[in-house]
Design a protein around this nucleic acid. Structure first.
Lengths: 184, 184, 184, 184
DNA sequence: CATGAATGAGAATTCATTCAT
DNA sequence: GATGAATGAATTCTCATTCAT
């Protein structure tokens, strides 16, 4: 892997482990096995590492979705899909929350995070449309939006309570989303 | 207002505006129009400001709920109630998220936030039971849980996008919760 | 007791208990049961409390010596005399050491401490001369000087090791001083 | 000289000149001509500078004693040896006193200072035993103890009066120690 | 006179960032 | 390119001193 990505990966690992403010440049450097000074050859400053990190989230989630098989209508819905995916998603959401609240220059980050989120959502809706060409876009968008709300809610609660999603919760959430999908 | 509350209010404003890590003692002091040293006459250290802040959230939300008229079954449900309440709620949730994420390495905070949340939830469930004595507690609890998920989700999204809840979103969410309430 | 002396006494107690730098104005005020502000009505600043404290040592030791019965030649010498006296002396020496090393404006304090010490020594020698009019002053002075050296040494050692003077040490020191007195 | 030793030397100079409490990190840094932050690259915190300082005293005094020719029985005794050595010794004792008095509430320091002192004393007694194999250890130890008392006393007095040891005092002290040596 | 709230300078420590090697 | 020593601004917290009441 090239240095740029190596550093980025280390930064992500550090930030997830310690949170934005406790992930110091030295920490990241140690984690990437490079010197602290080298980081400044690849990134202008700490903020631009954050920026790259956020942009990467979009990229990774998109490529994740490219890899996974499309949802089969006859199978029961599972918005958590693989637990790996959910773990990643949870990390991403936490990072975004952390970054959004930690940013020195609030507006810039806020915009960045919002754009990231919109880009993801657009991509997801586009895919759904490919799968269900007959369905009204607004229904797809609403369905997805509610699902997103619940997911974010679950993630916040998990963060708050310090536990992971168990099977029971998973089934409950899936049932609700399923209900909503058919009610609509 | 007495100095103690003045400082607390300033701390809250700072934390909401700039996030936990950028709400430095100097910032808070400037915001309260007092000297930095004075803060230590009223609070032992920064942590105990946080603690007081979190405890205030519980107190304020409870007294808010004491003030509001009980929900009338025949009226359409509005989980957002007054916009003031929602604005406050949004600020509170953000602060809790912020503190919780700062708490990665501070068990004390995590515990504090979790306790706060549980206290609030218990209080809400207790009230609902008074209103619907016949209903099964587990149904009340689940219903409340899902509502909470959605609320947290909405709040995260609003924070992410930087906008407030508009009428359209409000109606949509209320409709969903209403559906869930009757489905259950 | 008047306020001035009350404060001075409290300052002494605090300094002995906590050392110069840990005896804050607030501490002293609390110890004297007055407000912090009041101290500044009686003393210009913290330094002038120190100054008064040092000057008091001379005064107290002189009056102690006025009270005690004169040494009887036929009795064995005991430079520690009563243990109360030694405890006081130890406190005084520690305070002087502390003050000498802690002073911001080294030279001023140093001079003060030196003057204090000389005043004491002169007073002691004067008394001895009254008792032994025939003895050469230089012998008295030397004898006293060596005794002082040993006393200071004992005090430093006690401070260093954290123990008090036991009987064995006491006898040993007295024997040495006795020897010196007769050798000379 | 390497930075570590440079800082240590500066710290020593500051502590001797201004005393423990006025030897701030900034002072030390200025004295060493480095930035305050750099000190933390070489020392974990201020306490570990003190620790290193105290440990250095033992090391330096031991190596000083290794260098000097053994005392010749036929020559008159001179406990002050070279004036350089005495100046160093005086500084060392002052620092130890200062640290010890700062240690009122810091057990760690007290232990450190006591250990240092014991280590030095043991080393001195061991050397004496090599030179006088026939002599009883308890006599060596007592003799050394009294010498130490006198030395500490002299140092305290010098500190108090602000002057160095002059020839007259030197001869007098040497005479006393010599007397003691033969009396015992 | 007496209080104690208020101030602000200064202490230890951390960390993003720079730059000589 | 790569390193890591060096910098200095910022942070939390303490305390002598002042001053309105």
């Amino acid at each position: 892997m090239n240095r740029h990505d190596l550093i980025l990966r280390a930064a992500r690992a550090c930030m997830i482990e310690k949170g934005f403010h406790n992930a110091s440049i030295k920490n990241i450097a140690a984690c990437a096995n490079v010197s602290a000074g080298l980081i400044y050859r690849y990134f202008e400053n700490k903020d631009s590492i954050i920026e790259a990190l956020v942009k990467n989230i979009v990229h990774n989630m998109k490529s994740h979705m490219d890899d996974k098989p499309q949802h089969d209508e006859n199978q029961p819905l599972d918005i958590f899909q693989t637990s790996d995916f959910f773990a990643d998603l949870q990390d991403n959401i936490f990072m975004l929350m952390d970054i959004a609240s930690a940013a020195t220059r609030n507006t810039r980050y806020k915009k960045l995070v919002a754009e990231t989120h919109n880009a993801l959502q657009d991509d997801i809706v586009r895919r759904e449309k490919q799968q269900h060409p007959a369905m009204d876009e607004s229904i797809i968008r609403t369905r997805h939006y509610v699902t997103t709300l619940l997911l974010d809610g679950v993630i916040v609660q998990c963060g708050r309570k310090g536990y992971a999603v168990d099977d029971e919760l998973r089934q409950m959430i899936n049932a609700i989303v399923d209900t909503l999908v058919h009610v609509k």
